[in-house]
Design a protein around this nucleic acid. Sequence first.
RNA 1: GGGCGCGUAGCUCAAUGGUAGAGCAGCGGCCUUUUAAGCCGUUUGUUGAGGGUUCGAGCCCCUCCGCGCUCACCA
Length: 505
Amino acid sequence: MTEYTSLEKIRLQKLEELRAEGIEAYPTRARRTHMSTEAISEFESKEKNGVEIKTTLAGRLRASRSMGKVTFAHIEDGAGKIQLFVRANELGKERVDFFNKMLDLGDFIQAEGVMFRTKSGEVSLHVHDFSLLAKSISPLPAAKDETLEDGTVIRHAALEHPELRARQRYADLAVNPQVRETFRKRAAIVRSLQNFLDDQGFLEVETPILQPLYGGAAARPFTTHHNELEQDMYLRISFELYLKRLLVGNLEKVYEIGRDFRNEGVSFKHNPEFTQLEFYWAYADYFQVMELTEQMVSYVADKVLGTQKIKFKEHEIDLTPPWKRLEMRTGILETSGVDIAEHKTAEELFKAIKSEHPKQTPDPKATRGKLIDFLLSEFLEPTLIQPTFLYNYPRDISPLAKSIPGDPLTVERFEGYVAGFELCNAFTELNDPLDQEQRFIEMGRDYEADDEEKHPLDEDYLRAMRYGMPPNGGFGMGVDRLAMLLLNKHSIREVLLFPALRNEE
RNA sequence: GGGCGCGUAGCUCAAUGGUAGAGCAGCGGCCUUUUAAGCCGUUUGUUGAGGGUUCGAGCCCCUCCGCGCUCACCA
């Protein structure tokens, strides 16, 4: 049974009274002729001519100030807010009382009348009739807006609790317009990415989310089971192996934007399901992918924000191409003093790190690649504020990337860093089926038999590769992270409508 | 999963171990151009849950739940 608060009980009582008077609190149909902003701008453009503008508006009651026989109220619709002027002269004392007593903040109503300007100058609707469209039983988290003389709006008692905002996103959206704006912009970001790639001749495709095997990244999967097929299945951890199968099928430029699922920890930049963009581009290498990446991200910033100069936390970031290129070896050497090229085994590299930085505690059992990753995140990453392509990665943490000709320890891979965090990851893709098989086997050896990160060998993927895969450049980017970066949001939860949360109770 | 912190009215927040409060919202009034409207009056609580210490616990201790920050895994 629902437990009602005292405030809710009062509203339920009003519902009873409405019913007793034969008034439908949830009528089937509504009427609206104008959005709030349309009504205002139409009035302003015709105000001088004295043309009467009749409108019917619909929206949510957000504020109400009764002065006895006159009430000022604001309703909010999809476009903005507009003031209603409700007066006994037109409606009679009874209807004004009804407005004041039977309507509550949060109710959806419609009101028809004529546009006018109040003494204090606000364009408003002079209401001739109104009706309830949907009763609100639970009071929305109360918030009041104060508009200062300079136009700044201050929110008082706004819903701020991060848990409530995420758990009850509907209430958050209802009372915090800037949250609605965030998600409109997020949609615009995704649309711009699609437009950009479409214009470049890429084909948008959809590949299986439910997979018999998982692969393409180092992460633990979510496992599920198909009853009729009597087999376990996995939610995908990346799109890579399926998209590259399409290159075998002569689709030369493909991309997918969709959900990945990784059974890992949750943090300000990790959600168990997140939106990923991956594209694969036949006959391109990682340098070409770099150029396309900087063009794509700056294009999106331009379309969504109208500028390539963005703010993130205390940083001013310029996304205008070209972005800085920094070889990983050089970057690590400059920031940590360790030259990874001088230490070709894990043991040597470990000693070098310890002698250069006695206080640091890298994992003594780590592979050479993992040690390099340690140096990267500990020393180099925090310095990469302006957009930077960090390129040439150790082979053993990049099992799907192609080696640099003449350098068997290094692969043609880059990651794009902005504001100190990793935005994207790309490489010249490995297209040699025999080498790929070796890599899979090598990678399997790095893990204990029961290691959850140990990945199954995808025989079908190797079968596809054996038909022949064109040389190609591949790319992956967390779309949520791009949204965080462009919208200056410092937690992934701010750019996810319904982030993963533990069950209540 | 580890460490640190937080949880008080519908919302935002107070309250030395000593009667649980304020503003807004709500409810009852007054008010025909207000806009965080104003004025008078007034209600609202299992202080996240459970246990313990104490004459007495919102406050101290323990367990649990949820969230935040952070570390690890990862993108």
